[in-house]
Design a protein around this nucleic acid. Sequence first.
DNA 1: TTCGAAGTCTTCAATGTTGATGTCTCCGGT
DNA 2: ACCGGAGACATCAACATTGAAGACTTCGAA
Lengths: 213, 213
Amino acid sequence: MKTSNLNFEAKQYTSKDFDANLPRVILPAMPDTPGEPVAEPTLEEQIAAYQREFQDLDPQVEQIVSALGRLNRRMNVAYGRQTAEIGISNAEWEVLKALVLSGPPYRLGPGDIAKRLGLTPAAMTHRIDRMVQEGLVTRDRDETNRVRVIVELTDEGREKWLEAMRLASVFEEDLLQDLTPAERGILGEVLTRLLRRVEDAQPDADGRLTDLD
Amino acid sequence: MKTSNLNFEAKQYTSKDFDANLPRVILPAMPDTPGEPVAEPTLEEQIAAYQREFQDLDPQVEQIVSALGRLNRRMNVAYGRQTAEIGISNAEWEVLKALVLSGPPYRLGPGDIAKRLGLTPAAMTHRIDRMVQEGLVTRDRDETNRVRVIVELTDEGREKWLEAMRLASVFEEDLLQDLTPAERGILGEVLTRLLRRVEDAQPDADGRLTDLD
DNA sequence: TTCGAAGTCTTCAATGTTGATGTCTCCGGT
DNA sequence: ACCGGAGACATCAACATTGAAGACTTCGAA
């Protein structure tokens, strides 16, 4: 078993993501020495606690959902660390990904990018500002339709994306290292099926988060 | 097959999470009518695009990772909608979860909560402020150790948490509706194994996101 | 041609988070 | 007892994102 570079770290202060996870637990009925540091709960402890507090919970469903959430969180932390290594932010990496995936000539409007990233156009304006400054992309008016603005990937931007992909590949392979090829196939298929259901349930359309605080 | 309430919606403007997903694609070699709206890429298109742009990519790994990312994103959107329905924010729900999972007497320090949520203590100060205002929690000095502050769940806070759990349960069951019990078992087991690897790779410790923009 | 509606991006005020700093309390050493 | 270090929370300036409003361009109808 390859023990390699799973470069995680729970990394305090990650936020930036909502997940169905975390907290801790108190198994039988006794908290750790009252007033003490209070440790991180394992997945099992977490599920046990949920069951105790909420009878109707299906432990199997909870296991899947919680593992998904916690896993995603750790992965995002790892990606964040990697992008930091090559001198870009996670936010910038997202934009680069969108542009590369759009295919040649690697151009998109700010609004399009915003849609793909789930941000407001306003946020894109500022984000693009920074990226232009850093030489990752260029921003020009579309002369055939001056309403539009075109954001285009620069060579430097593409290079950064490549570096990030290389790091990500290594990381992802490490992550899946102890799954057999058969298990990988099943996992991919099942996840894809879940995803299809969700994405079909709502083609995409619009809708905001309505995060009324 | 139950067709029920998968209440998603890609929901523009979600952000709040970093994931390895989104963008679009241009399969053979032709973008949609140049300058047009540009649609959302399917998972398959996205993987195809990545392969085209990055030779060394393992499609199977990418399928798993991308599906995970996209799935999580949709789920977070769904959770956000649900918490909004019962009048709390996702952020507040996270705090409630942390408190409930801590077990009776449902008390934690701001710092502890911050650790579990991956936020800075500074952020917790304000978040708790709001939640005290709304009557979801109380905040008091620990009289036995006046350095500490104790955040405690109120009955109203617990009730909100219960409502959120009920909604979440329905949603999660819907999400997994077309997995057989056997498939659920495997999925849960495999995800747990992945999670264990990541969490073991880095017990937890500290570390920031270093999101250098 | 002129006017108005729609679409796209930018600007602005408000909010939330971060990182650094400040303040207060507890605890151990002398 | 006293003093200094460590720990925990609060405060503050800087920055990113949001939602609403504003500016400009295009397109269609009168």
